[in-house]
Amino acid sequence: MLDSAILGIRWIGKTVLFPVRILGRVGLFLATAIFWTFVPPLKVERLIRQINFIGAKSVTIVALTGAFTGMVLTLESYYALERFGADALLGPAVALSMIRELGPVISAFMITARAGSALTAEIGIMRITEQIDALEMMGLNPFRYLIVPNLLAGIISFPLLASLFNVVGIYGGYVVGVKLLGVSSGTFFGEMPQYIDLTEILHGLYKSTTFGLVVTWICCYFGYTTGYGAEGVSKATTRAVVASCVLILVCDYVITSLLF
């Protein structure tokens, strides 16, 4: 009787400790990475490579999704606003939702899908083929060579891509709103500056910068701690993408509620 009670309590302890341990490891990983960010020298060449990989190569997909997001948003908002005769607010409505919310979030999703998964797979394969061990054997710190350039590239690329997403989206909205739905071009653009402050734009930038850090951090962590073999890498990749997407939405909520 007593034995089974102790067993039960032990089980509770175990289930509580497990996520705590994981969180601790993930946190420690970030702390180590941040430590090595500030220990010179910075591997500029790796950084440029990763900005190219995470940022420059995502331009097309981000622009494409941005255009369609802006277009559908305009269409939806138009039908809603038209009922109140408030179609003058179409431009500001589209621009505000893009800048504050959709730009940072959807572009982060797209980059996670395109670059985040590849990041996990690449680092995971380097782990299982012992390339990370080889780096350590040469006396070179894997964080400096692999993790730090990725984190920095994420922090730099995400806000730039989100801005691109916003601009393309707003112009996508312009095409639908002005050319298809017949809202006057002056109303569409003219009203925007009245409603958008620098704070809104900064708000969006805080978000996308945070997402950049979170996504690259999570993707690097899962790659770095990948399990054995091809199965390990595939599992790590799936987990990294899912965890990144969930965390994007969680952070989005937290930041929005903090900044309001």
Partner: peptide, 15 residues
Amino acid sequence: IGIACLAYLSIKLGR
């Protein structure tokens, strides 16, 4: 491209 977009947003729209 990125900085041009950011500048457009903050100067034109964000005043």
